[in-house]
Amino acid sequence: MFDRLFYREKGLFLQSFHPATVLVYLLVLLILSLIYDHPLYLLALFLLLALLIREVDGLDAWEGFLKAGVFLMLVVMMVNPLVIRAGKTIIWHGPAVPFLGKLDISMEAVYFGAASSLRLLVIISIFCLYNLMINPDRVLNLFSGVAGKSVLVITLATRLFPTMVRDLQRIREVQQLRGVDFDTGSLWQRAKKYSGLYNVLLLSSLEGAMEIAESMQARAFGSGKRSVYSRNMIRPRDLFCLGGSLLALLAAVWGLRYGYGRYTFYPEADFLIKDGATLVVLFIVLFYLSVPLLLSEGWKHCRFLKSKI
């Protein structure tokens, strides 16, 4: 499980963007998912993300992410109705509880809980997409100019991570050959055997750290200004995608100033679609956000577009 990263290079169009583009695009999605209250808008974002995740061939990974989110979602859906008293339509009169007061569950609170959990799913999906779409090495490369040491530590540790899992296996096997049986004995005895394993791992890793430090010193670490080599290209697809995300953000902020994307749950829930403009604003924002999706489709089906982006 730990011999490779979560990210897999599949040579897909959506994985070929410049890392900065992907970061901006996903940041815009994240901001939108946090500023929108409107269930319809959140649902639209969720569908868009589902399409994008399908496009990076990540439906299986997405399922894992969503499963992890279900517990959090249940908490959100339970807590909200229990404590919110602002709703007008009471669907269940509960008993009085000492700490919380009278347990009246209102329709609006349930509704709000559902909308919040939808937002939770959207956020989880955004990060699922991040993990599928962008190679962490390229993100680190992007920041290596401004934050050399942090990136060095992260790269070193990420590289050492699978080594440690392997080392642990190796030490275990060596001890087994010497007659330590990890599967027998009482819990306390077994814990003792495992603690021996841990000590050896800690000692040998720190010994390795010393060697790494000496080797860094020998390569003149920290002796002067660092040089940076980067091979990321900005292509037309990146410009289209960047433009799309910025326009989407502008359109969304403009819409929010006039109340499109806001939604009042209390004391009584608003209409889902108040007027036509709600849909028009949603459509504009969604159109700008779906630029990567459209480009990806064009890449597959239109040779002219493929040669240009």
């Binding site: 060095l152 070193l156 540790a157 991570f161 800690l202 430090a213 860094m216 920290g222």
Partner: peptide
């Protein structure tokens, strides 16, 4: 941070 501290942070963080 000097090179020793950097590598110790990396190793302990990986652990």
């Amino acid at each position: 941070l000097d090179s020793r501290q950097v590598s110790v942070i990396a190793v302990l963080a990986a652990l």
